[in-house]
């Protein structure tokens, strides 16, 4: 698809130059797939962010990761450290985002700046990740807040994501309800469990996405899991709490009531997967 309204293609080399080039008629592109598909008719200039030095994925000595905004989703799935983080939650999720052809082109920054229809966001929320961006100044914030307070709608350039190191004995999992192999999620869930030494759970992160929220933590379910033995009963109870707590949306693909049922099932299955990984790692 070629965009006929584009008159200028700008290639800035620094994030400051790139930000200065943005405007009402100037859209940033990284992978460019979403802009190509949405064909913003008001845009006459494209600002190519791929010349910015934001492509690296680095692992800190402590085990955390900095993922530059220009890293492709494929690069994330192929990175040995990231792929193994918390039992493999990232590649488990990424394999269902678009097709391999799209993942070779789509960047993390572009995906997060888009701010809709995401499997990536709930996982990053479960990982306690921070998003970094530039809007004249450099900022960092928990990823959930970036969307909740509408920051993502402002004029800015996402520069990357900080994923903290795993702590204790922990494992994560992702679960997605979809109709075909790389369909958009009807609903998704991500979780992380921490084991204590005595056979119970120390703590949990439970996140549900595509509700209306891109990724909302269900703290009541997290609290219910702390201190209890992992197993079907505990996970069913957490699922029931999540179903009661999480607001769901209706659209042409599923009713709010159907999605509400999915919340409980998704959380339950996601927790079971994470617990199985926890057993293997402990």
């Amino acid at each position: 698809m070629s965009l006929t309204n584009i008159e200028t293609f700008v290639r800035p080399e620094t994030v400051e130059e790139a930000f200065a080039a943005l405007g009402e008629h100037a859209r940033p592109i990284s992978g460019g797939t979403d802009v190509m598909l949405r064909n913003p008719t008001a845009a006459t200039t494209l600002v190519d962010l791929m010349g910015l030095p934001l492509g690296e994925i680095t692992e800190s000595p402590g085990g955390g990761f900095t993922v530059g905004a220009n890293a492709t989703l494929t690069a994330m799935a192929d990175h040995p450290g990231l792929a193994g983080h918390l039992g493999g939650i990232l590649p488990e999720m990424l394999v269902h985002v678009g097709s391999p052809l799209l993942r070779n082109q789509c960047t993390l920054g572009g995906h997060l700046a888009r701010g809709r229809l995401s499997d990536v966001v709930p996982v990053l929320v479960a990982l306690d990740a921070e998003i970094t961006w530039f809007d004249g100044e450099h900022h960092a914030a928990p990823i959930a807040r970036f969307y909740e307070d509408g920051t993502h709608r402002g004029r800015l350039i996402v520069t990357g994501v900080e994923i903290p190191a795993a702590t204790g004995t922990s494992a994560g999992a992702f679960h997605k309800f979809l109709r075909t192999f790389f369909d958009l999620a009807l609903l998704n869930a991500a979780c992380v469990l921490w084991a204590s030494g005595d056979g119970t759970l120390d703590a949990a992160r439970v996140v549900v996405g595509e509700t209306p929220s891109l990724g909302v933590r269900v703290t009541a379910a997290e609290d219910a899991l702390a201190g209890v033995a992992p197993g079907p009963e505990a996970f069913a109870a957490a699922g029931a709490i999540a179903r009661a707590e999480v607001e769901t949306r209706a659209d042409s693909r599923a009713s709010a009531e159907y999605r509400s049922q999915l919340v409980g099932v998704a959380v339950e299955r996601c927790l079971a997967k994470a617990a199985a990984r926890l057993e293997v790692s402990s």
């Binding site: 698809m1 460019g32 797939t33 190509m36 598909l37 494209l46 190519d48 097709s99 052809l101 082109q105």
Partner: peptide, 25 residues
């Protein structure tokens, strides 16, 4: 539309949908 893959080409060794890649990029 980036759905079908019949326009796939390799760009620096990675297969992509050429219909969704800006040529200038």
């Amino acid at each position: 539309n980036g759905d079908c893959g019949s326009c796939a080409v390799l760009v620096d060794g990675a297969a992509v949908n050429a219909c969704l890649v800006f040529a200038a990029r």
